[in-house]
Amino acid sequence: MKRNRAVNILFTFPCVFAFTMIILIPFFYGLFYSMTDWNGVSEDIHFIGFKNFRYLFSSPDFLYSFLITIGYTAINIVLVNVVSFMLSLIVTSRIRFRNFYRAGFFIPYLIGGIVLGYIWQFIFNNALTAIGDSLSIQALQVSFLSKPGTVIWIMSVVNTWQYAGYIMLIYVASIQSIPASLMEAAAVDGANYITRVFKILIPMMANAFTISLFLTLTTSFKQFDMNLTLTNGGPATRFMEMPVKASQLLAMNIFSTATANRMAEAQAKAVVLFVALVVVALIQVSMNKKKEVEM
């Protein structure tokens, strides 16, 4: 048995080593730097306690980014999961070409967020406005990306287009693991399709919902690449009497703070993002877990 233990340690070592070096140590460094005035280069670092955090919660651009990220996440959770659940129902029915549809819906997920952002930017800024101009539809003539009120919704639509196929696969796997006898028995008892979906399918799939909601929640909260290329944070809007960037999500706010050489402040924002994400995700998972059933 002793030899086995040595082997265990040896085999877990690379993983533990990488995790420590890449995640754990930088994390505690990050906590430390968030309480300093470090600019990214200087060796002259001063400890300033929670000053960065106090500043954050009085700066409109950060508060706005925080709120808009919560809004964006809420829209996404609903939109992505509703769409992908409906897609999964479609591709598990007896429809023809269902395997083709499965592959088709999944493909957008394989396109990187950067490329995808540019493609959709072209569609909204050039293609749709050109259609609007030639057909004289006023609503289309000004790009949706330049209206502060719609831009978050547009980002959610694009994110849903990308992400729904992936979540759909999780639902499909879950639907297929439900014994057909259950659905058949319900059908024999006279339950119609809608009733069967709501009374049998959804309760049986509760664990799939847990993981899907968790994934959509965390990815939306951390959204960055598509945000950068699709909207770049623009257009501007007004919040607490100050001009701020209407679609600048938290991750991008952190990024632009860091690239302005305000490393410690950016790090403090990252710590806030981390705490918020952990709290929200824990609440969500524990609530969902209660609804899961054992088979």
């Binding site: 501007a236 302005a260 305000r262």
Partner: peptide, 28 residues
């Protein structure tokens, strides 16, 4: 650092959206 991109940038963008509102721009 960052004054142009993070502070003045949104102010000018907002003025471009609401060009009539000169006083607001000066105030900002």
């Amino acid at each position: 650092d960052g004054a142009g991109q993070n502070v003045f940038g949104p102010i000018f963008d907002l003025f471009a959206q609401n060009q009539k509102n000169l006083d607001r721009f000066i105030d900002d």
